[in-house]
Design a protein around this nucleic acid. Structure first.
Ligand SMILES: [Mn+2]
Ligand SMILES: [Mn+2]
Ligand SMILES: [Zn+2]
Ligand SMILES: [Zn+2]
Lengths: 140, 140
DNA sequence: ATCGTTATTGCGACAAATTTGCATTAACTT
DNA sequence: AAGTTAATGCAAATTTGTCGCAATAACGAT
């Protein structure tokens, strides 16, 4: 039942800790210099989530992304911050300002997943130079 | 390019309009008395989304759920309301109070997906009678 | 009412993301 | 050093959603 330390585990954890945005299994694999099996990466990430080292973000695409917990203690976990998912470069980043959602009486909240998708700063300015048809604005 | 009316389309639309919660493709199929092909259901639902009759919600499980647009006009769509996804009965319901997320300057927001997951009222009270180990509370 | 165009459907195949079973390896406890 | 069992690799399975294509049928025009 207790966890063991392995090179793979350390490598993945290090990667997530360093990263300024959430990573998918694929992103983790791509950034590792050594090959780690896909299933293994998933298992490592899921264990991190269980252990509260990392939190899981469900992207606009329905995929799973994993980001380091910042400001979480072993006792208290707050993942009430929104995420921005760029539809162009795929980046998923944690935003800082927490959101507060009120739910109906009698309901028990457990997890919160807030994701705004659109174009990040970089991709947004790229887009300006090569504009497409119909300049949509605002949320839909 | 214009849409045609078919029995399948009407049946699915009726189902979604009536439903007080968002439905997945599987849920739609289960609730229909007539069999409609899986791909067809997806295509019908996607067309509804395109046409602004229905909005897509990405559940905590990464799956797509579809709910009727209430309060949307052909001109203005606002889907800035949160959803509650019950981890027990799978229900995904739209909550009414809109949320407002602020994103960094230069970013362009396009879609918003807010999902609180946990136990709905029914499942929450069921749980009280048959409690499990460790009474967690609050968001994580 | 009939005809022609083409949107819609069904079906199978495909694709991507994630999980699972199982045998093998290796971390950690004693 | 030896034993226990968590972690890994690999293949196969699951799950969810999409796509190509031929057959069907809605609907505007005749
Ligand atoms: Mn955290
Ligand atoms: Mn709507
Ligand atoms: Zn971007
Ligand atoms: Zn429920």
């Amino acid at each position: 039942m207790s966890r063991r330390n392995t090179a793979s585990k350390s490598a993945v954890l290090h990667l997530i800790q360093q990263s300024d945005c959430a990573l998918s299994q694929e992103m983790v694999a791509d950034r590792l210099r050594t090959d780690i099996n896909r299933s293994t990466i998933y298992r490592i990430l899921n264990r991190f989530v269980e252990d509260g080292l990392v939190h899981r973000v469900v992207g606009e695409d329905g995929r799973q992304y994993f980001a380091r917990c910042s400001g979480c203690t072993p006792e208290v976990h707050r993942h009430d911050h929104p995420h921005f998912h760029c539809t162009a470069c795929e980046r998923v980043e944690c935003l800082s300002e927490p959101v507060n959602i009120s739910i109906p009486a009698g309901y028990r909240a457990q997890f919160l997943n807030v994701t705004v998708s659109g174009l990040c700063g970089d991709c947004s300015s790229d887009h300006e130079k090569a504009p497409s048809a119909g300049g949509r604005k605002g949320l839909s």
